[in-house]
Amino acid sequence: MSNPILDIKDLRVRFKTEDGFVPTVNGVTFHVNEGETLAIVGESGSGKSVTSLAVMGILPPNGEVYDGEMTFRERDLLKISKKEYRALRGNEISMIFQEPMTALNPVFTIGYQLRETLILHQQLTKEAAHKKGIEMLELVGIPDAEKVMSRFPHQLSGGMRQRVMIAMALSCNPKLLIADEPTTALDVTIQAQILTLMKNLKEKSNTSILIITHDLGVVAEVADRVIVMYAGEVVEEAPVFELFENPKHPYTHGLMASIPKIHDVVENLYSIEGTVPNPTNMPKGCKFHPRCPLADKDCMTIHPELEYINSTHAKRCIKV
C-alpha cells in the first residue's frame, strides 16, 4: 500500500445561517493514496462538494470546519497560515469545476491566465511561461494551441474550456487534483473525451485525483476507489470493482438500482422513496432509515458507525 497524500479524519463542516449553525458535513473520514483516483459519489445535499471545498480551503465565508483533521503530505491543513494555503493551492493541490466559465476570468485571454499561474507558482519568465502554456494546451488535446492562447474564454466551446481548466490545473504538476463534477455540464460525446483525457493524464503524471460526482457511470469509468456520501456522512467505502459487484449499504444499493440501464431495460425502475433529509432536521438514528427498505426499530435509535468488513470495504449500517 502506498502512502496517503491526503488524509481526512472526522471532518465536520457547518454553515452559519440566520437560524443558527447548520451542519453539512458530519464526521467524514477518508484518504487519497498517491497516484490513485478516489471518487466521492452522492446526491445534492450529501455534502460531497462542501467536503472538497473544505480540502481546498475555499469554503464560503459563512462556512467553517469546526472539528476534525486534514493532513496533506504531512502538513496539517487546519493549522497552516492563509499564505501557505495559497501557495499550496494551484501548486500542489489544484481544482477543476463543473462550469469552467465561472472559474475562468472572462476579461483576460487564456494565454494570460495560463502564464499568470505559471509565473506566480513556478517563478518562470514570461517567455518560458508562454512556451509551457502552449505545451500544456497541447497536452490536453487542444488543436492550434498557439492561437487558443490569445482567445478569450467565451470564444471557446464548453469542452474546450474544460480542457483549458485542466491544462491550468495541471500546469504546476499538482500532487492532488480535485475535480468537482468536471463533466456534468458537458455533452456525452465531449464527456467521453474529457474522461479519457483525465485517465491518460493520470497515467502519465501519477497525480492523485479526487473526483466528486453524482454519476455512477463516471465513477465506474475513472475511479480506483469510491466513497458514497449521504446526508453529510460516508455510508460506504470500497474499491470500485467491489463496490459495483457487492454494494453493502442499502443506499448504495438503491442508487445503483435506480439508474436506468442502457443495456437492460426493466419496466419499473427501483426507486428510493422520499427525499434527501433537510440538514436542519436530520432523522435520529441512521440518517437513511426513513427511506430504507431494511430499516427497523433499531435503525431509528442507533446511529451506526462506519465499520470495516475487510481491509478496504466499509459500510455504515447495522442491518447488512
Binding site: F15, E18, G45, G47, S49, V50, S52, F97, P279
Partner: peptide, 12 residues
C-alpha cells in the same frame, strides 16, 4: 458546490 449550498439554504 452551489447546488448543495442552495439546497441547504432553501430548505432552511
Amino acid at each position: 458546490m452551489t447546488t448543495t449550498l442552495e439546497t441547504s439554504q432553501s430548505s432552511l
